[in-house]
């Protein structure tokens, strides 16, 4: 069996401010997040979740500090307002961005995401949730070690979202996912490690909370989930 190198995302004394601005988006941020697995970045709006995601992508302007990625060579970042070009059906776009060997994987993902009936539609003809689903499928079909999903399942109904998250976890156990969401139940339930970025002026600026990391074959226990949610809310 092929042994994967250990994955780790770590950050020390990280500060980020937009050019020509005095106040920092986040300051002295430090965390250590082991991978692989389905992890989350949680916090109120404006604390720098997307800025941190862009730092992971290599956009270092305005950043100081140390960012370490071990066992992670290729990072992809997807966000919820992305669009596919309108000159072809979404199914045709998917065909064009995959290798021939990936057809089976594509079909499985399309089915998991309940997108089979919509492959013949143009992107503009889809609902917001369908748009986000088709966008996420094309990222999952790419070569990556880490995928940052910035509100990637916004506007998707809860049962479908749950099915998709469990499906992703089952199909990509050796990948590092960083899921940015404002849904505390969702991150508490499905994520292994949750980096909670605190609101402005709060110390510490971030805390790591262990999530329930639910998989499809285990029952959900109410009490631990509620404790995790409470921890997240206290840290935010």
């Amino acid at each position: 069996m092929h042994a994967h190198p250990p994955m780790r995302l770590a950050c020390r004394q990280a500060t980020f401010r937009y050019p020509q601005t005095a106040s920092a988006v986040f300051e002295n941020l430090a965390f250590d997040m082991p991978g692989p697995g389905f992890n989350a970045l949680f916090g109120p709006s404006g604390v720098g979740k997307t800025s941190l995601a862009r730092l992971l992508m290599g956009e270092r302007d305005g950043f100081s500090g140390e960012l370490q990625m071990t066992g992670i060579k290729r990072v992809l970042y997807t966000y919820n307002t992305e669009r596919l070009p309108g000159w072809a059906a979404v199914g045709q776009h998917l065909e064009r961005i995959i290798a021939p060997r990936q057809h089976e994987q594509k079909d499985q993902l399309v089915e998991l995401f309940d997108m089979t009936p919509h492959l013949g539609s143009r992107f503009a003809q889809l609902s917001l949730g369908q748009k986000n689903r088709i966008n996420l499928i094309r990222y999952l079909l790419q070569d990556f070690e880490m995928l940052v999903m910035d509100e990637s399942l916004a506007n998707v109904d809860e049962p479908t979202r749950e099915k998709i998250l469990l499906g992703i976890k089952a199909r990509f156990p050796d990948k590092f996912f960083l899921y940015i969401s404002h849904n505390v139940i969702e991150v508490a339930k499905f994520c292994r490690h949750i980096l909670v970025m605190a609101g402005k002026g709060r110390t510490p600026s971030a805390a790591m909370v262990a999530g329930q990391d639910l998989t499809g074959d285990q029952p959900l226990e109410r009490d631990p989930l509620e404790r995790t949610m409470l921890e997240i809310m206290n840290a935010a």
């Binding site: 992508m57 992809l76 596919l84 070009p85 961005i97 990222y139």
Partner: peptide
């Protein structure tokens, strides 16, 4: 919002 995917994946 369209070009991001193609840039990030080197396409």
């Amino acid at each position: 919002d369209i070009e991001h995917f193609y840039r990030i994946t080197g396409r």
